[in-house]
Design a protein around this nucleic acid. Structure first.
Length: 467
RNA sequence: GCAGGGGUAGCCAAGUGGUUAGGCAGCGGACUGCAGAUCCGCGAACGCGAGUUCGAAUCUCGCCCCCUGCUCCA
């Protein structure tokens, strides 16, 4: 049984989806106007692992991730650059999607865009007005916070206190400072659509309610996003969705990811302390990035540093050593008495990882189990030639962790390299070593290293791989 | 101010009453022509103060510090 820390209840709740065997999952996506940074990547990797785990458990997961392509920031940015806002959003989204692929994120089943859902948004706004929870004012439509009794239930905010806090918040024709826009009247030179309230465009927040419910129905299982979206974005989503459909809870399990920080402070575009996902992936393998993220629980902050990434690279290398060793080994037929203990250790590791993941996706615990098993396998391989059954079990284990975490790297290759030539060189080097010509042997090894090939001498002879 | 999350060894990070977490770095050893990898061993920890308990990182109370949210935000 999977248990999930639920922001809505404040508890770790047993996961019982609305519909047996099926999971409706919505992850707050991008407002594409510039490069995504490490913080976005963290959230998406975290939910990628959530999805992979649920799928591993046999759930049929529908994963929806929105593209907010109609939003002030895009308009502002497009105006600065002198380009078309919708075009800018399309291009930035395409760039982000390519990065997602590199990061080994499973593609969402739906990537709904606001610009494709304007009609649905208008209809939802009308429903909210009819249900008495919104009003029109000077071409704008505002959500009537005071009419929605449970406002504040997700973010644990006191609605009365919000009145004082937001005394100064402006808005054309707003009746209450807490009210927020479902529809904004058009400004010159900005994209707009016609509506019963005149030319305009959707407010921020409403798109997520509309696209989630249009695609998945009035109630969904999991809704995720960064902690910074909890208020006001997610709080407003809850209010809008429930006000429109009359069904609650809109989302059964709300999940919020911790921030990526830099020197303890939140990484954000406005602070300017960000590192783009592209920069990170230019310097590091995606699997190392994913391991770094998995080493921290999804709710805790991750303090970003290049050193931390380097550590994760080394840690990943260590984790993958057994896999490389069995690729280099020649397995033998039959059974060996000492195989039993190793096969049991592999089963034990799987079961530990399963328990950890079921417990609110405790990836750091799961990673620890992987390391422990990796050491056990190395011990075995130090002492024994593996049998085919053992090789199979190890490969199956690595396939399992790759399935759930996507952290097993492709074997590295050097472009334009003839493996036979490397083997020939190493053969010559062995001859040199036999004759004690170590200077020549080292020259060959150093030379190979400069073209990206690492040579290691083992008791079984030299092995090489791309660095 | 209100609300939430945290403070665990040099760094990162699990762990909710008794049993080695784990990683990275470090030190010693085995192996090796050397290097690397691997293995074995080692050290080092629970923010502070009281309390409960046979026993507290874990429970209670008080305090200190950090981060986040309170209509830009993954």
């Amino acid at each position: 049984m999977v248990r999930i820390s639920n922001s809505l209840t404040g508890d770790k709740d047993p996961f019982e989806p609305l519909e047996e065997g099926k999971v409706r999952m919505y992850v707050c996506g991008l407002t594409p106007y510039t490069d995504i940074h490490a913080g976005h990547a963290r959230t998406y990797v975290a939910f990628d692992i959530v999805r992979r785990w649920l799928e591993h458990k046999g759930y049929d997961v529908i994963h929806v991730q929105n593209i907010t392509d109609v939003e002030d920031k895009i308009f502002d940015h497009a105006a600065e650059e002198g380009v078309n806002p919708l075009q800018l959003a399309r291009e930035e989204h395409a760039k982000a999607e390519a990065l997602f692929d590199t990061l080994r994120l499973q593609r969402a089943h739906h990537w709904p865009k606001v610009s494709d859902h304007i009609q649905h948004i208008i209809e939802t706004n009308q429903a909210i007005i009819e249900n008495g929870h919104a009003y029109e004012a000077e071409g704008n439509v505002y959500f009537d916070v005071d009419s929605f009794e449970s406002y504040g239930k997700l973010s644990n905010m006191d609605p009365d206190q919000l009145i004082e806090e937001h005394r100064d918040v402006e808005g054309e024709g707003k009746q209450d400072p807490r009210d927020f826009a479902l529809w904004k009247s058009a400004k010159p030179d900005e994209p707009s659509w016609s509506s019963p309230w005149g030319e305009g465009r959707p407010g921020w927040h409403i798109e997520c309610s509309v696209m989630a419910t249009t695609i998945m129905g009035p109630r969904i299982d999991i809704h995720g996003g960064g902690r910074d979206l909890k208020f006001p974005h997610h709080e407003n989503e809850v209010a809008q969705s429930e006000a429109a459909t009359g069904k609650e809870p809109f989302t059964k399990y709300w999940m919020h990811t911790g921030f990526v920080t830099v020197g303890g402070e939140k990484m954000s575009k406005s602070l300017g302390n960000f590192v783009t996902a592209r920069e990170v992936l230019e310097k590091h393998r995606p699997e190392a990035v994913r391991l770094l993220i998995a080493q921290t629980h999804y709710q805790s902050p991750i303090d970003f540093s290049w050193d931390a990434l380097k550590d994760a690279e080394r840690s990943l290398d260590g984790l993958m050593v057994p896999l490389e060793r069995i690729h280099d080994a020649t397995p033998k037929e039959g059974e060996q008495s000492h195989d039993e203990a190793l096969l049991e250790a592999i089963e034990a590791a799987k079961s530990e990882i399963t328990d950890a993941m079921d417990d609110d996706f405790d990836t750091p615990q799961a990673v620890a189990s992987m390391h422990t098993l990796s050491r056990r396998i190395n011990q075995y391989l130090d002492d024994h030639q593996p049998t085919k059954a053992v090789v199979k079990a190890i490969e199956t284990f690595y396939a399992f962790i790759d399935d759930v975490f996507a952290i097993v790297p492709e074997e590295r290759t050097v472009d334009g390299l003839e493996p036979e030539l490397v083997d020939l060189l190493l053969h010559v080097r062995e001859r040199a070593r036999e004759e004690g010509a170590f200077e020549l042997a080292d020259e060959i090894r150093d030379g190979l290293e400069t073209i990206g090939i690492n040579v290691e001498d083992t008791s079984e002879g030299p092995v090489w791989r791309a660095a």
